[in-house]
Design a protein around this nucleic acid. Structure first.
Lengths: 123, 123
DNA sequence: CGACTGTACTATATGTGTTAATACAGTTAT
DNA sequence: ATAACTGTATTAACACATATAGTACAGTCG
């Protein structure tokens, strides 16, 4: 379900956030859907409950999920807008960085158009 | 000359690398040009010499500069290609992340075209 | 009641970033 | 040769973020 790599240099809590965002983006998780519990994720991926809880806390602060102690965590109704806006802001920063490094907009558009998935993945 | 913010969460040595790359991209630094010495940068920006040295080491490992003990560090002849390739790879990864977050290529191209500089800067 | 939920807390270990203080070897100009 | 510069290496110390471990509390549900 989620793709977690404990060896990666990107923090585990951030990988959890990204995984849930991907699930939502791919409609594998719908508004109102209950997320796996902190302890479930903790067991299944051998992650400390505190780390999972940290990820949930960040997702809630961003308005992507809402947590109800005693019940669980659920995908927010407005998650689409939040995720979209965050992704747009992040990508816009990437554009700024690339331009500062000397690439021009035409080159960036070319990279976007030629982008193939499964680039860094194993077969 | 360089834009260094000690309060930023991005490491200082990485900020130094980016600054030098920007200088090269803007032709303010030409192939063969001598960079300011480790101790000069250290003094001017109140950065530890070790941190500056770390940045120089990374730039040299990437082939962007070459260091000569006793003489100084100089902008490599082939820095253009290296910087360009690195920037392209980095941006391509950004594209992948954005697509996974649910944005489509048309939206990404729109963001590139509408990108304005001086977005996160003070007036 | 019992088993689940999210959350909070302290403590610990680890890795990274940064500074500090030296030290060494090579270059350059006087 | 001496002095002043260059990049580099080493060791130590500190701060911070990440992650784990263990425990605890309050709310929910069958």
């Amino acid at each position: 379900m989620m793709n977690i790599d404990p060896q990666s240099r990107t923090p585990i809590y951030e990988q959890i956030c990204r995984s849930i965002i991907e699930l939502a983006a791919n409609k594998l998780l719908l508004p109102g859907d209950k997320l796996p519990s902190v302890r479930e994720i903790s067991k299944q991926y051998s992650i400390n409950p505190n780390t999972v809880s940290k990820a949930f806390g960040m997702l809630e602060r961003d308005g992507i999920i809402y947590s109800v102690p005693g019940k669980g965590a659920f995908l927010s109704e407005a998650h689409d807008d939040v995720i979209r806006r965050n992704a747009e802001l992040e990508f816009d920063q990437c554009v700024g960085t690339a331009l500062k490094s000397g690439l021009d907009k035409a080159k960036l558009i070319e990279i976007v158009e030629n982008h193939k998935e499964n680039k860094g993945e194993a077969t």
